[in-house]
Computed example of a mutant assay.
Amino acid sequence: MREIVFDTETTGLSFSGGDRLVEIGCVEIFNRVETGRTFHAYFNPDRAMPAEAFAVHGLSDAFLSDKPRFPELVEAMLDFIGDAPLVAHNAGFDFGFLNGELKQCGRPLVCTTRMVDTLTIARSKHPGAKHTLDALCSRYGIDRSHRVLHGALLDAQLLAQVYVELLGGRQIGLGLVSDVTVVAAQPAQVRTPSVVRPARAFSASEAELIAHAAFMGRVKNPIWGSDASA
């Protein structure tokens, strides 16, 4: 099954409050395996970047000033995601901004029935634990050492690995990936039957019997010579 894992960066927490989408990163997975296909874009939000948001992702006004507006890349983005389920961490937030931008440029909204929320899955699987992306990467041994600031594509790539682990990990060899190479079974190797040799007879020599009798003669009151009924 084809799925798209995605993440967004924004100017703040509320699209309805005037915040805008400034970055989106999408990673294609097929049957829980990354295909290597991605979609990534920065957007000029046509508004100033608040200091709080800049501290999270490091996207400055100067950096975004020459980037395209969302409507300029919306077609390419929609072509990439197609009709696949969309996986995100705290997906309601990302869907809110994605659909806010789509509505503003007159495009149909992405139906929330396509939403797969890894935060909900993590809370169900690990109740009481931390459920941030960093915490889940630590839990599953996913290297995030190169994650200094939030970045939509990097976070989507990390989340793709987390998502697979949350679902139980990759099921290698169970027919989940269409391009798995099948190795033909080799004929069984015929073994040559072992040669059965007759059992060897081991017996004491005459000298060993004499030495044994002499030793036994020196034993005082042997238990094997006593009356068993006494």
Rank of each mutant, 00 (worst) to 15 (best):
L153W: 04
G168A: 06
A55S: 15
Q171Y: 00
P71E: 15
D61N: 15
A201H: 10
H126K: 02
L78H: 10
T192C: 04
V116D: 05
A199W: 04
A51S: 15
K125W: 01
T11W: 13
T132D: 01
M49N: 06
I172G: 00
H146F: 05
R200K: 14
P198N: 03
G18Y: 04
L64E: 04
L153I: 07
L149A: 02
R37D: 14
E206Q: 13
Q157R: 15
R32E: 09
H126D: 05
A48E: 13
F6C: 03
V33L: 12
H89F: 08
E72T: 03
R139M: 12
A213G: 02
S138V: 13
Y42S: 01
D94G: 08
H89K: 07
D134F: 01
A204H: 10
L86M: 12
G128W: 03
P85W: 11
T113C: 01
P198M: 03
H146P: 00
T10W: 12
D66E: 14
A76T: 02
S203L: 13
A228M: 07
L133Y: 03
P71A: 15
P85V: 12
F215D: 11
D134C: 01
L153M: 10
L78S: 09
A184P: 00
R218P: 00
H89A: 09
A88F: 02
Y140R: 12
V190M: 11
C26D: 08
T8F: 07
T10Y: 11
S178N: 02
E52G: 02
